[in-house]
């Protein structure tokens, strides 16, 4: 196969198609900056999809649970070893994603005899000021898009299909307010999730459906699924800024 470059390109293309098909049903994840930090929101079944990586870094992932687990572990190991031997301030999402995870993913993706990672991820790192927030969308082939491709957007979205992600970004671009309260940010994030997870409608008249339609859609979905959310707080008493939202607090925020 090495001697036949065309077959290698073909194999890669097939593999890309296969992975995209596998990722397509994934429930979208929205991450966005609000007044107090960064909020991650998704809706899913029992399995957790939002994770703490280090003091200031969180991960949201769709894909195969086994692959997500391997990547999550790799990220935590790298960050923890760095944080222990140097200091927490030396743990940087940029280095973690660009110099460690991206090469790992690319190698696995292009070794056509081995299995690729079936995963699409959002990493976010909360900064001291909103300008320091960093969002990275990391793909199964090692490609990384900062801020979901939009420079300094202050938000990032992933979903099963490129079309759904575009719709989420369009909505976030329109509604996102970096100074919003957590409650306000939750509403926008849920709208983004709803539009990303709605069945594709090619004949939408003005692009995005209205808020009532999005609300009705997610109320119907939430009957049989669970809302999951976490925050990276910009200022907190401890160095650990990750906090899972749960119970009454989550209930109140999403009402």
């Amino acid at each position: 196969m090495i001697e036949e470059p065309y077959r290698w390109v073909e194999a890669i293309a097939n593999r890309r198609e296969y992975i995209e098909t596998q990722l397509a049903p994934g429930s979208p994840i929205a991450a966005l900056s609000y007044g107090g930090g960064i909020l991650f929101v998704t809706v899913g079944q029992a399995r957790q999809k939002l994770f703490e990586i280090y003091d200031r870094i969180a991960l949201g992932a769709i894909g195969h649970p086994g692959d997500i687990e391997r990547l999550r572990m790799a990220a935590i190991e790298l960050a923890s070893a760095e944080g222990f031997t140097r200091s927490a301030a030396d743990v940087s999402l940029r280095r973690l994603a660009f110099y460690s995870l991206s090469p790992l993913l690319k190698t696995a993706f292009e070794q056509v005899y081995g299995a690729p990672y079936l995963a699409r991820m959002i990493f976010a790192e909360v900064g001291a000021a909103p300008e320091g927030d960093l969002y990275l969308r990391v793909e199964y082939d090692g490609a990384i898009a900062a801020e979901g491709g939009v420079k300094r957007a202050g938000f990032c979205a992933i979903s099963g299909t490129a079309r759904a992600t575009e719709l989420m970004e369009e909505l976030l671009q329109r509604d996102h307010d970096p100074k919003a309260t957590l409650h306000g940010a939750m509403k926008v994030a849920l709208d983004a999730w709803s539009i990303g997870s709605m069945p594709p409608a090619d004949d939408l008249p003005s692009g995005l459906p209205g808020r009532p339609a999005l609300l009705a859609y997610r109320q119907e979905k939430l009957v049989s699924a669970t809302l999951e959310a976490c925050v990276l707080e910009r200022s907190a008493a401890t160095s650990i800024r990750y906090r899972q939202l749960a119970g009454d607090e989550l209930q109140a925020l999403s009402a």
């Binding site: 703490e52 280090y54 935590i76 923890s80 944080g83």
Partner: peptide, 14 residues
């Protein structure tokens, strides 16, 4: 080591 151990456990084991 202890501080990092507890954090590492929480992060990996959820």
């Amino acid at each position: 080591v202890l501080e990092h151990s507890l954090q590492y456990f929480r992060r990996t084991q959820l």
